[in-house]
Design a protein around this nucleic acid. Structure first.
Lengths: 284, 284
DNA sequence: CATCATATGTAGTAAATTTACAACTTATCA
DNA sequence: TGATAAGTTGTAAATTTACTACATATGATG
């Protein structure tokens, strides 16, 4: 897709003179897009038609078209790269890095979600009699967030942080219930146990976790997100944010599936909150 | 910067015919970049020089240069636009929309953070004897997440979901303590009250909330994020994700400030978790 | 209604890109 | 090794494209 990468990769397919052109372009792409074919030819020490042929070999219609592609590649500048925070970074640097690497991860996550699985997950949630959200450690706050979202839907929804409560809750669940287990690694022992208990009671177990993990193996349905792992010791945890967005997506699918009448109800819940708020106008 | 936006904004400066050109381009920019000046002129129903003048008015050198700029604008894809989920959207559509609008909001948020404030906030947190995180409703899970992060730092850190517990906790705090209050709107009554209580006890009150809100007025320091408001009835709550990233940033700043020895300690906490996990290799 | 200013189009010109073809390399096989 | 074919590269002409200068039209102002 990106033409600059394409140039580097196709290098072997170029002829000798074409390679000269490639070098000049890679060395200074910004200059290249503002040059005419004649200028570029002179810079590369080749003839104009050679430059043209070079462009064609990259599946562009010709030189102007090539410049367009090149411009697009350059526009993406540094397209949200996953740069790690370093020891001596100042506030401006680590702020920028955290935002950007989060966005980079989200971009990756976005491309990795499987729509069909999402759809099926929404199906299951819609039909559930009771929905439970469990997670431990960092994932607990994700489960917590899920509770907040689904609670508004006027569906029986359960969330516990305590392992024992989670267990007990699962022991009491049945065929009609959906248990959503959240764990980035999918290797938290007690969560895997909970999955087993839930399945033992014929509940549907939905995992928001890594593909192929121990937890994933115990689930009826797995929503996995490919997020570059946070090998870093510093904090940013893009995986967790991707999970939250996934919850957003499920919740949205849920409302849409439930239709109009249901959404009116949702609005009522929102309105109820008003009483506990300062009015927008006459704030103290 | 972005030429497409520029076209929409400069609309009033265009002449009648130039506006025709603008319309055609905005209607189908992808086609525009692949057309010659003659084709575009014909499509717009104007003469070629008019198109050229149109380009010049946008501070480009001429038509080819304009196309380059246009191509760059388009390169950023449909650069993460905040598109709302609609009634009849299928799973693929709402998934895409949610991801994209979240990213769009993050981009906005990123540009709105004030580095100096962040730096001061990190200062305050570093010096705190005890840090409390409080939020209600959706913001509770953000506070919860903050707890998870800061807990690892081996600093006294407090989090309650219960209003009464929050109150009691604040009554017992002192000069050396920092209370972080999280609320997107900043209009939740009980949270404002808590801010007042905390300040009454000389604690430092840090607000992660909207500028100029009732809550913001009670804070010693306000970390505000300009996030396009979620007027939508559907779920996506970009504001909350921006808050989480902000917490990430604070936590990162915190570790960096604390230096090396401190980070070793952090690693130890991470290692401790191993025991509760299935090993990566011999997973069952 | 005359005059000026601005806006738009026509036609010609200059520039840039592409095509066609010829010259030159390089590889292949007898 | 030398002939031939396949592939490269360059030259020059053809074509397309963009730009300039000027003429005409439109519209506002006194």
């Amino acid at each position: 897709m990106n033409i600059l990468e394409k140039i580097t990769q196709h290098n072997s397919l170029f002829s000798k003179s074409e390679r000269k052109v490639a070098e000049i372009i890679l060395a200074n792409p910004q200059t290249a897009i503002h040059s005419s074919i004649a200028t570029l030819a002179k810079m590369s020490g080749v003839s104009e038609p050679t430059v043209n042929r070079f462009c064609r070999r990259l599946d562009t219609k010709g030189y102007p078209d090539f410049k367009l592609h090149l411009a697009q590649s350059l526009a993406n500048g540094t397209p949200y790269v996953n740069r790690h925070v370093e020891e001596n970074d100042g506030p401006d640097e680590y702020t920028k890095k955290i935002f950007e690497s989060t966005m980079a991860s989200l971009e990756v996550a976005r491309q990795s979600v499987d729509i069909n699985t999402i759809n099926r997950a929404v199906d299951l949630l819609t039909q559930a009699q009771k929905i439970s959200f469990f997670g431990l450690g960092a994932s607990a706050s994700v489960a917590h967030d899920a509770l907040n979202k689904f609670f508004r839907f006027n569906v029986p929804v359960v969330y516990f942080e305590d392992i024992l409560m989670q267990r007990m809750s699962c022991m009491n669940c049945g065929e009609e219930d959906v248990v959503v287990l959240i764990s980035h690694t999918g290797r938290t022992k007690s969560l895997v146990e909970i999955a087993q208990i839930a399945r033992g009671n014929d509940a549907t177990v939905m995992g928001i976790t890594s593909k192929g993990s121990p937890l994933a193996k115990e689930c009826n349905i797995v929503l996995s997100l490919e997020v570059p792992e946070d090998t870093d010791m510093y904090m940013p945890m893009a995986s967790r944010i991707a999970q939250l967005i996934l919850i957003d997506i499920l919740a949205t699918g849920f409302t849409l599936r439930r239709g109009n009448k249901f959404r009116e109800n949702l609005k009522r819940v929102k309105d109820t909150l008003r009483g506990s708020r300062f009015d927008k106008r006459d704030a103290p």
